[in-house]
Simulated scan of single mutants.
Amino acid sequence: MPISYIPRVTQLDAGQLDDQLEELLKQQLFNATKYFEPGILQPVLPELELLLRTWIFKYSVYDKKLTFGQQMLSLKYNMENFSKSKLYWYYGYTVGLKYLKDRALYSLTSNTRVQSFVHQLETFQLFGDILNFLRFIQSGKYPVLIDFILGLELTADKLTREDLTDFSWTRELLWHNFIELIGTLISLMNIFGLQRLLSNVLKYVWWRQHIKPAGKMDVPTMTHATVCAICSQGPVLPHTMGCSHIFCYYCISANKAMDYEFACPKCYYSGKEIIKFVMV
């Protein structure tokens, strides 16, 4: 009788084994061609990776309805709901979509519309993977987004690791994936914008003297004691943004580039234009 419950750690291991196998085969390919003249394979690298992934797909999912990683751990997809059309959708998502993104990055680097579309596509896919991983942790089914979309359930006649009782190791693997999830979320955050929001909140706490942004700003003046309002050092290429404080050009331009609503840390004034300071 097929086993309906598959441990989460076993399903995650199967996915990691698939990724490691692909990297191993790519490394073997690069080692076999390392003595070729530089630049020969670079233009067709997306096509080589497409052929490699297609070969893996052909002799795993297409022929046996399971990946190599799943085969190593005695897992398989439920054959009853793995139709021919689902097989093609599975190939398009796992192989075809990667090739289109790689080819767009190689051939259409200067096309801003294509690059923007690819970036948005990767963002949506990343959010989908994050939401699916959270659902997988809760339910224990469909570890990969495409499995959830197509309804491909994993089953097994036996588990090669059914005696797994090392709960500390299991927790370590789950925490490792959770930490990767947190790192991915942090990379999507606007750290400068978050810093501005926290600064706006903390300025009201009792141990800090709250300074309201003035309605009318004084004319900025610079003396030998003047320091940058951001780095607290002598201003390098002094600039202003409408308030009475002076900034280093690189300090204010970098912060404005990352957060358009960046406010002066001294008076909380958010100017829209950076102006070069000229001493009269």
Rank of each mutant, 00 (worst) to 15 (best):
D129M: 10
F167C: 05
I130T: 07
N31F: 14
P38A: 01
Y260H: 14
R8Q: 11
A257T: 09
S168P: 00
A263M: 04
A225C: 07
L174G: 06
A257P: 03
V227F: 05
I130R: 04
W89K: 07
S139F: 07
S4M: 10
V201E: 11
K98M: 05
N78G: 00
P2Y: 07
E172N: 10
F178I: 08
L164H: 08
G234T: 10
L145V: 06
E122L: 07
N111T: 06
L185P: 03
L41V: 03
Y90A: 01
D157Q: 05
S232I: 08
S4A: 13
S139R: 10
V44I: 15
K98F: 08
E180D: 12
G15V: 01
G140P: 11
H239Y: 13
I146D: 02
F167E: 13
D218V: 02
L164Q: 07
V227I: 09
L97A: 09
I274Q: 01
L45I: 07
Y91A: 05
D13H: 06
L45A: 07
T170L: 04
C248P: 01
F262H: 11
L145M: 11
G69R: 02
T54S: 15
K276V: 15
S270T: 09
G242N: 02
L29V: 11
G92A: 15
P213G: 06
I56A: 00
P265N: 06
C228L: 03
A229T: 07
K158T: 11
D63N: 14
D218C: 03
I275L: 09
K84Y: 08
F262A: 08
Y59L: 05
M1H: 10
G242F: 06
L87E: 13
L66M: 12
D19R: 12
Y35L: 10
K84D: 12
T33I: 08
V61S: 02
E22M: 12
L145I: 11
L66S: 10
G271Y: 03
R208K: 15
I230W: 11
S139V: 06
L41H: 00
Y77P: 07
N111H: 03
S83M: 01
V227E: 08
Q138M: 05
D18H: 03
V205N: 00
Y91F: 15
L126C: 12
N111K: 04
D19C: 04
